[in-house]
């Protein structure tokens, strides 16, 4: 190789290196731009720019990060199904165990917010049984706690927060909510023996008294009919009036307990949203 050939060879190497650097540079610039939009809470534009990055990123250098940010942006816009789709793409392109774990947890958090909590718990169980994440048990239990909160099982949530030891606040809070809630089966059982008592147990005294009154009236008329051998009267009144009011009383007691429990759960979630400052789904 003579001197001229060496010079030309060097020249070509320079061109190649610089053009590659430049190609990487424009993707980096696009990534930074999209990330800036995300940080400025311009989620719609952020998704567009990350999608543009993915479209032109022929080598797939930003596949994990861009998909992850798109997922996060969709999540911020409460588009949980879209978020899960992009977190799954991020998961498929994760290169380290940490990235893999983070994207799995994001999928779980979106499922919790989407209220597909049983799926979230299934996913948490599968993450828990994965040996690669054996050192992340506390985090897994933390998200299990949140999954149980959103599935309205506050007792179980409290048990899982107890296993994260740093979260006594959530543990105690969930315990308190679980104690506050009414037992629907107790409400039904009470109304089964004394009509109206289930309603009174949930604080609906007037409704309870009305239910008791109707059942006493039609019960008396029915029994009186049978006692005085007016069997047909007894059957008609018993079937069309007493049984209807009695069944209505049972249904009413259960409904009131469920309504009250929903109020308690919503108040608790509202409190957590504005007053709990730890990581939330």
């Amino acid at each position: 190789m003579n001197r001229t050939q060496i010079n030309i060879f060097t020249f070509l190497i320079f061109i190649l290196v610089f053009s590659n650097l430049n190609a990487q540079d424009f993707l980096k610039k696009q990534f930074d731009y999209a990330k800036k939009l995300y940080n400025n809470e311009q989620y719609f534009d952020s998704i567009t720019e990350f999608k543009r990055l993915l479209f032109f990123d022929s080598k797939g250098e930003y596949k994990f990060e861009a998909n992850n940010y798109i997922g996060l942006s969709y999540k911020e816009g409460a588009k949980f199904s879209d978020a899960i789709l992009y977190f799954t793409l991020a998961e498929m392109n994760a290169t380290t165990n940490d990235e893999l774990f983070d994207s799995k947890i994001e999928i779980i958090r979106s499922n919790i917010l989407r209220r597909t909590t049983s799926h979230a718990i299934e996913l948490l169980n599968s993450v828990e049984s994965d040996k690669r994440f054996s050192n992340r048990a506390k985090e897994i239990n933390y998200w299990k706690g949140w999954a149980y909160i959103f599935s309205d099982n506050w007792e179980e949530a409290s048990n899982y927060f107890a296993q994260t030891d740093s979260n006594t606040v959530l543990k105690d809070f969930c315990k308190k909510v679980a104690k506050k809630k009414y037992s629907t089966s107790l409400a039904k059982l009470l109304s089964l023996f004394i009509p109206g008592s289930g309603q009174m147990y949930t604080g609906h005294f007037l409704s309870g008294l009305l239910s008791l009154g109707w059942n006493v009236l039609w019960g008396y008329v029915t029994i009186n009919a049978f006692v005085t051998d007016r069997v047909f009267d007894g059957l008609i009144v018993g079937n069309f009036l007493w049984l209807r009011f009695y069944n209505g009383n049972l249904q009413n007691a259960t409904n009131f307990a469920e309504e009250e429990n929903l109020k308690i759960a919503n108040n608790a979630l509202n409190y957590l949203q504005f007053n709990y400052h730890g990581t939330k789904p």
Partner: peptide, 15 residues
Amino acid sequence: SISFPQEITSTKTDL
């Protein structure tokens, strides 16, 4: 090396 590669990649890099 500073100017030329940018020229040849400009169509590719201008998203």
